[in-house]
Amino acid sequence: MSTVAGEPSSPTRAIDLAQLSERLGRLLAAGVLASAFLLAVGVVVIVVLAPGTGMDGLLSARSRGSWGPASPGVLLIASGIVVLVATPVARVLLAARAFATAGEDDYLGLVLAVLLILTLSVVVGYWLPPSL
């Protein structure tokens, strides 16, 4: 992405944004494909092996505590969800590496701040009481 003519130019070690964009695209596509495969197979396994009844069956398995004895289908779906949620996090990590390599400390700082907040989300989600 070039700058507008007459605007202050980018630093000499400017990152190759086109290349970063391409890499991010490939990473996102890979994450999406992997998660879609796990989720789709998980649904098929559940329908074939352990068909529940109606919406109550769908709601019975939650992300923590009440998953009960993990069936293969639920395990596959859980893996798919984890891969899916991890995909944008991996994309931020890739960007951090690219900005660090290019020596763009200002954008590296921004991306690391995003990573910090995402880490905080994990901590908050785990320790958050059911109600405040």
């Binding site: 998980g42 649904v43 559940i46 529940g52 069956g57 769908l58 709601l59 019975s60 398995a61 939650r62 992300s63 923590r64 505590g65 009440s66 998953w67 639920v74 779906i77 859980a78 969800i81 949620v85 995402l118 989300s121 994990v122 908050v124 989600g125 785990y126 958050l128």
Partner: peptide
């Protein structure tokens, strides 16, 4: 991430 770890995601 908050909802997932807080137990609010129904995987099915």
């Amino acid at each position: 991430l908050v909802f997932l770890l807080h137990g609010e995601v129904a995987p099915l």
